[in-house]
Amino acid sequence: MSVDTGTMSHDLTALVQAVPGVTKVYSSAPLVLSLLNRTTDLVLRKEPTIDVVAVTESAEGLRIAVSIAVDDRTSASEACRLVHDAIAGYLELENAGRLAEIAVRVGSVG
């Protein structure tokens, strides 16, 4: 089954941003500060034209990857699991098919 990875990335970027404790959502690919700030602005204005959650199809199934910054009030480990669960729940609802990996990386706390 083929999926629309573009739409999925768009939806997931907004979804992850809404998880409690998440302050920034950014690409897992290397980036410079200016790009991060630009991305954050877009996300905070709720019009994420840059979809930073990577969605790729591989022989083993779908791969999702995202990096996040979390605030100091929630446990970073807990926030990370919540983001994973939000992504997994979305994929289940969308009937996205075989899943290879959901990679969530906490890059900053506080």
Partner: peptide, 16 residues
């Protein structure tokens, strides 16, 4: 970071 789901690969960076 541990998770029971087999496809989960959760990490916090050393930098964080």
């Amino acid at each position: 970071i541990q998770h029971s789901a087999p496809a989960a690969r959760l990490v916090i960076t050393e930098g964080a």
